[in-house]
Amino acid sequence: MLGEILHILTAAVIAWVLFVTVDIFFRLPERGGVSGASAIARDIEASGGALAGGNMMGNIVCSPDASAGTLLAACGVYVAGIPGGLAAALMVFIGNRICHDPGYAGTTGAVLATFVIYAFTQVGFAATDFIAGMVIAILTIQGLSHIHASRLLAQLWRLRQ
């Protein structure tokens, strides 16, 4: 019981680092990919947040990016191992194209997350830990405090520049 909770929290930290790294590497905070993402960024900035972090949060809402790729890759590894993760990457790619998003952040994130999660299932983690961990990770970005999350993301974005 306690060990499982610790596994879930560790998986949440790993998933958080993974998807934030991939998203910032693919320059998501630079600008809103679609007009809706820019509108969300403006609203978050109006409430006291930072614009770069708001752009990234808007992009996460409006198109399946690396966070969605990580979640669906964890689901795929849980259902069918590595082939399931690669099938999830294909579905994220189709979802990107449906949402008019030209980027490859989601597909890259899903393929990367498939191998990372498969490696962790070999050392005692369950794939379900990563599903719950990814939901906790997205909660810390999108669900707790938009002001603090967007400022943190903007600081990480300045670090990359």
């Binding site: 679609v34 007009s35 809706g36 993402a37 820019s38 509108a39 969300i40 808007g58 809402v61 409006c62 198109s63 399946p64 969605a68 979640l71 669906l72 689901c75 795929g76 259902v79 069918a80 399931g84 099938a87 999830a88 579905m91 994220v92 189709i94 979802g95 449906i98 949402c99 008019h100």
Partner: peptide
């Protein structure tokens, strides 16, 4: 169920995308 999760996620993202872009003008 992987296909169902992906279909639900892509569908709801598309819905949020449509609402947000209409909201933006």
């Amino acid at each position: 169920s992987l296909v169902a999760a992906a279909a639900y996620f892509v569908g709801s993202t598309l819905e949020a995308n449509a609402i947000a872009s209409t909201y933006a003008g």
